[in-house]
Design a binder for these strands. Structure first.
Length: 477
RNA sequence: GACCGGGUAGUCAAGCUUGGUAUGAUACAUGCUUGGGGUGCAUGUGAUCGCGAGUUCAAAUCUCGCCUCGGUCACCA
């Protein structure tokens, strides 16, 4: 059996190894960046959907589905938006051998087609707020450098698009989206920094963009979600007009936010270890696996005991399975650790004798013996403890990832170190400095801390002129 | 887009320089065995050697063209 690449030795090789071996994604499609999301991966995404759908529901979002084909003219309507996407849009130009009169874009994102409909749905302020969520796939042929889940040419995501009758309401919606995503990341034990992206890095057509970045163990950062305040830019182009209470007219104030299967990449990268995935209990499709440790002559007694324990745990509404396949117990231990199942219950002759079970937790690898009457109570508590443990680890990762730099030399040292993380520093606001930063250090300005004006503590890290804002710099995937 | 490296059973590799009937591990199937950290043994299944053309008595191997995957860089709103 081949040996895992060690996470500390070669992070990217480790990641690819885990994704392949845990059967999350199969990349052997012969189509670059368009992969099979296998059931192990799909189950995690499914849980993610359930968690988010619950939040969409309680905040009044409606789920809908819009077409994959977008008329080219829709994309062209918002020129800034169009130009931002041009290099990565895939087009359908033919039906069989016959060339189409008008070509269709395969959605790289759904603003245009959704807002075209919104303009027909919205007549008055009473039609708003309109909050629509869509689960779908999108296609962006933006790079040759694809990595399963981290950067694909086709991927699954959620995109929500809202319309409001006042700019204040749109700002509130931005905050609501931050709660929806933030609480989801919390439940997945993911660390994140929320920043307002610099003007030059704002979503094309938007007033401003908020992004969620998570630090990865290799010192780079990963954007795992974005929220955009679109103001009236798209509404004016797509003619989303409404009548106000006083009889006057205005264009809708819009927001949109999205999050993709890339979050799964973050979860794998942040929590995983040299044995494979470690899934946060709330997200884990399977929370407990029961593995029988069979010895000759005791097969039936052990099988019976496993089934009893299975039933008891199922009654407690815990996601549990009993693996009674013919594989050896050692094989199963390794297998379920690879898959990141938070808790494993081992039942063998010794356990039968002592009238209990052995419980192993995935995060710390600790094993304890508990008597039969304490099983459900123990695993319920353990699921909580594992969540806490993962949150503690993540807090450490976040703390380690944060540092300040006052001079360019300091910044350069950090960016060239093994773990650059987020470096907090000062910036004059000039895009030329941002370009130079990218050129020289291959690092990017992620943005300013959202909702908090930080005190400037030096001159611009690049040009040494007067700084206008405190920004966070990182190397990003 | 630039440069580099690959394509041989499901998977990973050897063979290629110096042409001569396809090699191993693993996986899979069957049986026995074993079982508290990827059991062991036996038997068996599985490859038009990426595609096309050329050279040759003979091509996985040499030549040319194409396709495709990967890596590094650029790009990534």
């Amino acid at each position: 059996m081949s040996v895992f690449t060690k996470k500390k030795e070669d992070f990217m090789a480790w990641y690819l190894d885990v994704v392949r071996r845990a059967q999350i994604v199969d990349t052997r499609t012969e189509v670059k960046g368009m992969n099979v999301l296998l059931s192990n991966g799909y189950d995690i995404w499914d849980r993610m959907k359930k968690i988010l759908d619950e939040k969409f529901y309680i905040t009044g979002h409606k789920n809908m589905y819009f077409p994959l084909f977008i008329p080219e003219k829709f994309l062209e309507l918002e020129s800034e938006h169009f130009e931002g996407f041009v290099p990565e849009v895939a087009y359908v130009t033919h039906a069989g051998e016959k060339k189409l009169d008008k070509k269709f874009a395969l959605r790289p994102t759904s603003e245009t087609i959704m807002y075209h409909m919104y303009s027909q749905w919205i007549r008055a302020y009473t039609d708003m707020p309109l909050k629509v969520n869509q689960w779908c796939n999108i296609i962006r042929i933006d790079t040759k450098d694809t990595k399963p889940l981290l950067r694909d040419r086709e991927f699954q995501w959620t995109e929500a698009h809202t319309c409001h009758s006042t700019p204040e309401e749109a700002v509130e919606q931005v905050k609501e989206s931050m709660w929806i995503y933030g609480s989801t990341y919390d439940e997945c034990c993911l660390p994140y920094l929320i920043t307002k992206r610099p003007k030059y890095d704002t979503f094309p057509g938007a007033l401003y963009s908020i992004a969620y970045d998570t630090p990865l163990p290799d010192g780079k950062t990963l954007q795992i979600g974005t929220t955009h305040n679109l103001d009236q830019g798209f509404a004016k182009v797509f003619n989303i007009r409404f009548q106000k209470e006083d009889g006057s007219h205005d264009h809708a104030y819009q927001t949109c936010y999205g999050l993709s299967t890339r979050v799964m990449a973050a979860i794998i990268c942040v929590h995983g270890d040299d044995r494979g995935l470690i899934l946060p209990p709330y997200l884990a499709p399977l929370q407990v696996i029961i593995v029988p440790v069979i010895f000759k002559g005791k097969e039936e007694a052990i099988d019976k005991e496993c089934k009893e324990v299975l039933e008891e745990i199922q009654k407690a509404n815990i996601r549990v399975k009993y693996d009674d396949s013919d594989k050896t117990s050692g094989f199963k231990f390794n297998e379920y650790e690879l898959l990141g199942v938070p808790i494993r219950i081992e039942i063998g002759p010794k356990d039968l004798e002592k009238k209990g079970v052995t419980i192993a937790r995935r995060d710390t690898k600790d094993r304890i013996f508990v008597t039969k009457d304490k099983i459900v109570e123990t695993i319920t508590k353990l699921l909580e403890e594992i969540t806490e443990e993962l949150k503690n680890r993540v807090k450490m990762l976040m703390d380690e990832s944060m540092s300040d730099a006052k001079t360019y030399d300091e910044l350069e040292n950090k960016m060239n170190s093994k773990k650059p993380g987020f470096v907090r520093t000062n910036w004059c606001g000039d895009i030329a400095c941002a370009d130079e930063l990218k050129e020289r250090l291959k690092a990017e300005i992620r943005g300013t801390l959202y909702g908090e004006e930080e005190e400037i503590f030096g001159s611009c890290i690049i040009c040494d002129e007067e700084a206008k804002e405190v920004v966070y710099i990182s190397k990003a995937y």
